[in-house]
Amino acid sequence: MSQAQEERDAELDLLLRRAGITIPPERYAGVLNGYRDLQAALPLLRSARTAAAEPAGTFVLDTVTRERTP
């Protein structure tokens, strides 16, 4: 295992501890497996985006007020 991988794996312990979540030892390998897989996917979120790519839809007035806008 590379040093970078070891460091990333160590971050899992840190993040779970900070979140107050205790993973039982017999279940830890499964969580670590998922963590590595998720970490591998995260760079895909960070390719260049345009200014139009913002999640403004979350705050459309229609959604908040339950009223139709013209």
Partner: peptide, 8 residues
Amino acid sequence: QAQRLRRE
């Protein structure tokens, strides 16, 4: 970033 990508 996931929500931004979602828009695209």
